[in-house]
Design a protein around this nucleic acid. Sequence first.
DNA 1: ACCTGAACACCGTTCAAGT
DNA 2: ACCTGAACACCGTTCAAGT
Lengths: 197, 197
Amino acid sequence: METRELILRAARLVAQAHGYSGLNFRDLAKQVGIKSASIHYYFPTKGDLGAALAKRYTEDTKAILDTCLMECSNLSGCLQQYTDLFRKALENGSRMCLCGFMAAESDDLPDEVKAEVKAFGDMNIAWLEKVLARVRSGASLNSRKRQAMAIFAAVGGAQLTARIRSDITAYDIIIGTYQRCEWFFSESERARIRPRG
Amino acid sequence: METRELILRAARLVAQAHGYSGLNFRDLAKQVGIKSASIHYYFPTKGDLGAALAKRYTEDTKAILDTCLMECSNLSGCLQQYTDLFRKALENGSRMCLCGFMAAESDDLPDEVKAEVKAFGDMNIAWLEKVLARVRSGASLNSRKRQAMAIFAAVGGAQLTARIRSDITAYDIIIGTYQRCEWFFSESERARIRPRG
DNA sequence: ACCTGAACACCGTTCAAGT
DNA sequence: ACCTGAACACCGTTCAAGT
């Protein structure tokens, strides 16, 4: 396999466990079998590597999600596959979504990386909107957009919680609770709430 | 103010923006007006600093939440104050919950820090269970525990999403959606779902 | 085209030395 | 009790030099 590809694959696993700041050229080089200075031939700066990493991650994820969308006919199947996809990161050494981790590191990301991480979120939300549009054509565009954002945020939060507890069942419990909609307020409680923003 | 206190205050703001890995003794020392080697007098290792930081953060948060619990009579008011508290971090320079950030960094945290970050989650979930118990005495203990975990995870995910979008209104939209329970499935859709785990 | 060693300013940590 | 300078192995980056 090409060196550039080997670097990206190794870097992805490292970044999903240790974040952008946890990436370092010397260890990466050791894994690939070259010297750290050589990585700069493919990725001049760490920012270039981070941006390429996030972009590739978005492409790969989009390909998987689009396949889901084609194969799944019902909403619950699609969303189950969506949450299962994020579960896989946890299964793989309690790793996180690459861009979820980088979202936390936002302040320390070079602009080009930040843009790619945001693009990952945009892609996810757009995909979720498409899924929701299939079965909730009645709901307004804005309402579906809000729901898409909420679902995207939820899997990130569930990953975070499962990660610190070193317990993947926490992810299942949280996602399961969302799915069953045992949420903030009961029907009667909700009537009393002033919406925000 | 005592030097130790000044270090903790400066470190908290840094860690909420750059995480545990973003903490560095030299910058911290500069802010406090001493040399980096002097910080080791108060916190022998970076792990000691991180653990003290997370512990203090938990204590401070618990004090605020317990005051809420005493003053608020209804569920929606309590939970609104809860989500507002996490909103404040975003208001303050788009910062994150200290332990939310550290949860992502889990793999790189010394054990003593990891334990304190987990303790923050436990405290939050216990508090939320107490709130839910007030108005949902009908629900089972386990059900309330699951809801508490879900709410805790949700604010973390909402922070993450708002942070990468550099847009605090994303937080409001997401939290608002949870509160209105426009969630994963409609009533009829939910009937078709096989629960997980 | 692809790789390297050596240098730079930066990190946490240690420690002998100061007051 | 509290602080410091100097040293160490580590980081990303640069660059002249190799094939």
